[in-house]
């Protein structure tokens, strides 16, 4: 990023904080605490270990459910994209799962499998998988047939074709599914925790809501927005840069 872009990005963040501070001072109410007050609560909860614990629990659920959803969603998406008959058979299933509200899936999972960890993970996975399948299926349908023919002609075999011909073409679709998936899963996990778990960010936010503790709600919000930004900066952007290095 050029220094001008960095400067603009920093200035925009400062402007956001200034607007927040301005409104908070003007309203002078507990329903909108100042950024300073939120920062103090954030620090206190970090030192007490409360925030890292609940954030860690939620992150663990995120990693497990995200991995299951992405791996199985990519595999099913590639299979449906390459096989027209299977795609025709399962297309209706996909539409049904895409349109079931997240809340319904979560409630049904808890009712059918009990208020435990596996039901919570399953609820998140079922909500995310259809999105991954649809994105990867579209990517697979758009694969360059000329390159696939070249791979067949030169006897690449399945493994080599997947790694060197198919996967690089699916990369933008996988990254799209990853980014939208992270955002979606965060939100679903919070509802899952709010409804049926006794720890995690969702559980804590529910508690703060009952206490009308807006400063803590904002402190926890800042924490997970920061984590998502960190994942973007440390994992996703370098991955993007590495896989796109061949472009002019």
């Amino acid at each position: 990023m050029s220094s001008l872009k960095k400067l603009l990005s920093g200035l925009s963040l400062l402007a956001f904080l200034a607007v927040w501070q301005g409104f908070a001072v003007y309203l002078n109410s507990n329903t909108l605490p100042t950024p300073g007050k939120v920062a103090v609560i954030f620090w206190q909860d970090c030192v007490s270990g409360q925030l890292p614990f609940h954030l860690g629990v939620t992150l663990l659920r995120l990693v497990v459910s995200f991995s299951i959803a992405m791996l199985s969603g990519c595999a099913i998406g590639i299979i449906l994209g390459r096989n027209k008959k299977l795609d025709a058979f399962f297309d209706n299933w996909l539409v049904i799962f895409l349109n079931i509200p997240a809340l319904v899936t979560i409630i049904l999972c808890y009712v059918w499998f009990g208020l435990d960890e596996s039901a919570a993970i399953l609820a998140v996975v079922i909500n995310k998988i259809p999105n991954v399948i649809v994105t990867i299926r579209e990517g697979t349908r758009a694969l360059d047939q000329d390159l696939l023919e070249m791979a067949r002609c030169y006897h690449f075999g399945r493994r080599k074709t997947l790694i060197h011909v198919i996967w690089p073409q699916l990369h933008p679709f996988v990254m799209g599914a990853t980014r939208s998936g992270l955002a979606l899963i965060w939100k679903i996990i919070l509802v899952v925790e709010l409804l049926g778990r006794s720890n995690g960010m969702g559980y804590q936010l529910h508690l703060f809501f009952q206490l009308f503790d807006v400063a803590s709600i904002l402190a926890y919000t800042v924490a997970f927005v920061a984590i998502i930004q960190l994942i973007e900066l440390v994992i996703l952007k370098p991955l993007d840069k590495k896989s796109q290095r061949w472009r002019r």
Binding site: L147, E149, H164, V165, S243
Partner: peptide, 13 residues
Amino acid sequence: IGYIFQNPRLLPW
């Protein structure tokens, strides 16, 4: 088979 296609069909990545 060595096949030299009309379009070179190189893997860009």
